[in-house]
Design a protein around this nucleic acid. Sequence first.
DNA 1: CGCCAAATTGAAAACGTGTTCACTTTTCGG
DNA 2: CCGAAAAGTGAACACGTTTTCAATTTGGCG
Lengths: 381, 381
Amino acid sequence: MRGIIRTGLDHLSLVRKDNSEHDFSFSQVERLTNKLNQTPQRITAETVAEAAKVSRAAVSRAFNPDAPLKPEKRASILRIAEELGYVPDRAARALVTRRTHLVGVIVPDVCSPWESQEIDALTTALQAEGFATLLFKTRTDFSMDETLLAYMRGFNPDSVIAFTENVRPHVLTRYLDRAVPIYINYLMDEEPADGLRAREPEALYDRIDVDQWEGMEQAVALLAGYGCRRIAYLSGKRDSLAEQARRRTLAALMARRGLPPPTIIPGDFSYDAGHAGTLDLFRVGEGADAIFAANDESAFGALDALRYELKRRVPEDVKVVGFDDISQSHWRSYNLTTVKVDLEARIRALVRLILRRLKDPAAPALSETVRTRLVVRGTVG
Amino acid sequence: MRGIIRTGLDHLSLVRKDNSEHDFSFSQVERLTNKLNQTPQRITAETVAEAAKVSRAAVSRAFNPDAPLKPEKRASILRIAEELGYVPDRAARALVTRRTHLVGVIVPDVCSPWESQEIDALTTALQAEGFATLLFKTRTDFSMDETLLAYMRGFNPDSVIAFTENVRPHVLTRYLDRAVPIYINYLMDEEPADGLRAREPEALYDRIDVDQWEGMEQAVALLAGYGCRRIAYLSGKRDSLAEQARRRTLAALMARRGLPPPTIIPGDFSYDAGHAGTLDLFRVGEGADAIFAANDESAFGALDALRYELKRRVPEDVKVVGFDDISQSHWRSYNLTTVKVDLEARIRALVRLILRRLKDPAAPALSETVRTRLVVRGTVG
DNA sequence: CGCCAAATTGAAAACGTGTTCACTTTTCGG
DNA sequence: CCGAAAAGTGAACACGTTTTCAATTTGGCG
């Protein structure tokens, strides 16, 4: 570890007023500097072993709960280690155990509310299990290229979670050819044409299924109940799998109720695209009774376009439904009716699967299903 | 590396339609499984050395641009390494160089728009420099406790950036006593009472100063120009240093123009607190001509309370100014006038300082200043 | 008290790299 | 063409752990 940068905002007179505390910090820095210049003597297991009059192996065992060691000896070692401020070096440990306790997370855009919620929940969960989140950014076009994969591989994460899509097959191939254990998780979200919830025929890998049928069905039922017939679908990014699944599900649900197929508004999950697309639909296109957006953020854009530019009342003239239920959706200006994915459950399942697979790479594949449900707020009804 | 989990949403018929591609993936997984079960033979520098008919040291040198090695030999080694898919093991490398190329980032809440923007920008910048972001979450009360610090220390990050405050002195002490090079960065934001921009008397550590005086002065000037006298300040979290700096700066600026001191609305940077605090001010308290919020998110809460619950027109009856200029601020429903911090410049400076300090721990301390300016939108004028 | 099994322990060998230090080869001026 | 300086190279060690394996201690039971 090399440095702490404190980016909190401070202010000079505050520093002066609380003299003792801050002088303290200064002297610490100086002490540190001195220390740095003289002896960079590191505290290692050897140091602890000498202090505790045991072997280095015993120290190692003291920190690995499963290793055999007489309880009182372990306690004694841990106490001394605590006093000395010893912490096992993860780099050295990783070198021999082949476990870094790092989980690589790939996202196109940390700022997106939905993604930031996922990162937040995931980080919390991983932290509780002794892991840490290693964050990587792709381009925002959802592509995950070979360069990034190789770059990340250098950090040896124990597992990789890609909140992005379109891993090109040849990239994956190269990756797998490295003798890297990989399991891929496809989510299945649509009730297929035959009316049965389909399951993968073979369970080759761990998987989390998000059952988006349920929540979307509730939404369509509600809209239909209000007499909406012309429901437009505000798309997400074309190449996103989430987008495709949601679009198909909506089409299937509407067909089932004898409604005309949805008008497709092109979009990319962003506020601006939702705004522009909605303007187009009503100015150039044929309008709609309701807009079903691929995510909440673009629903906000649609909502603002309807209210401010197009002077329509929501929900009286046009109804709007989103997808995700991000925290902004309950804000008074939007108060969006939306399909909520149980994020907590999803992340819990994710972490559970990771840990299980890490513990036993040969365990049989498992799949878990996460539900969705409609949250009714002000933009419908 | 152990696994890739793909959390994109997929859907069964899609899988079936694009048969070739997905069969491909399946077979990959199987090949992998086989590989895993037979020989987990890792590709190491030794492997490459044999293939290239050079020593292992040469391979190491090939990957360290500064090490002496005949150019053509380096090229040849790199080519063969590429073919074999060899990447130097960072754990082993870290063990000897004491550099992990990890930068620990501590945040209370990834979901907060401002913080997620910082994380996003920082991750991008670090990635470009060969580093990776290691993310940790504190409690949302801005405190950074000893447990987390110790936990993070185990990962040996080269540097730590704490987007949170209130490191308790004894925690810091323990931390420094580990012979860990640390530099602390206080930001200084207020024009002090004597009217001069104060500077730290001694440059003991690298530092980034955010000059929030400039942008806030523009905001107050604009408000005063519209005849606002009773300006309320919507606070952030009490113990946040940013909060304290902004409050003092506002008070100083208003005093300078002979305006009465601002009414303080308690808050915590959140939408809900902004909403509730504003309701209180107007229902129980004395109201105001304008509200200056500690950040944009709470300004949104104030705005919604004014418009929907209190039936005031913004900006005609009451004006609102925020701080940060997050991406939501340009959304049509809010269209917030706000003080913009030059985030890009701030992150660039941050990364520059980190890299410089890492390269040369003994370099003289440096400070950089980041400016702020007012972005005028619809909530004032 | 004596014996065998079980529990506990320490020495030493990995793990995969960077780096020092001699040694060899190349370069270059004369 | 010679010598010296420079450049390039490889063997061996260090980094701080975990883990194997053999040795030692402990405990139970007759």
